[in-house]
Design a protein around this nucleic acid. Structure first.
Lengths: 125, 125
DNA sequence: GATTTATATTCCTTAACGGGAATTTATTTG
DNA sequence: CAAATAAATTCCCGTTAAGGAATATAAATC
């Protein structure tokens, strides 16, 4: 992957917020919506942008799409994500995103599924 | 400075090459031209882009403009430049840029001026 | 002051990006 | 199969960016 592509993915606030959340673990689209408080189309497009460039992976889980950071990341991506996490942890927007993440019921997310299968069809957000 | 602005500066190969060279020390525009082998207008515009966003500083030295990384950089900029240097050191383009840099006679640059004043009016490139 | 060297700016074209409204697709449930 | 939920896609618009040709500016030299 070209280094420039990584930076292209990082040069939009919305995408930085998405990645910042994903550094905590996989999440579904509706949770991004709830946390970022941005319209669905915006979230979806930026996730698509990241996915097209290999910065995130997606899998369908019933009605939901679960996004996560790539299982196998290049050293460059790892380095930059680590750097991002470092740079971001004082900034209010990113901090409050993380706060809201922790307050969420992540019933549709593998995050706190603790192994047991996700109950299909239960409402998510 | 907004984090996004840093990433916007990093999402173009030409600018990455310029910054990679500047990590070695100050340089004048004509040396960038010689090393990158890109047209003058391209170099100049990208340097302008970086300068407008505070990623480089410029001072006039007789006929030449010397560019350098900011004397006082934010922690975020420092972190990202360090990360860049790390990511870049295996990539052919950036390596050969550095090779060409070392082969240059930097008579108009403070880089190897070793204290003595630059002889005004001597041709540069 | 005319010429040369170094660099910046303007103008133009083309492509990419970001955002929103509306529509579509996919899946599950009743 | 109809309805509901989750997410992606399409269409449209305004903005930004990248590149190049040509021109302008700045400083030094003759």
């Amino acid at each position: 992957m070209e280094l420039v592509q990584i930076y292209q993915c990082l040069c939009d606030v919305t995408r930085l917020r998405l990645l910042n959340l994903l550094l905590q673990g996989p999440l579904c689209v509706c949770h991004f919506q709830t946390i970022l408080r941005e319209p669905q189309v915006k979230i979806s497009k930026h996730l698509g942008y990241l996915k097209a460039r290999g910065l995130v992976e997606a899998k369908r889980e019933g009605n939901w799409m679960i996004y996560q950071l790539p299982v196998k990341s290049s050293p460059e991506l790892k380095a930059n994500l680590a750097c991002l996490q470092d740079c971001v942890n004082e900034r209010p927007i990113f901090k409050s995103d993380l706060t809201r993440l922790r307050k969420l019921d992540l019933s549709c997310s593998p995050l706190n599924a603790d192994g047991q299968p996700v109950p299909r069809g239960s409402r998510c957000c």
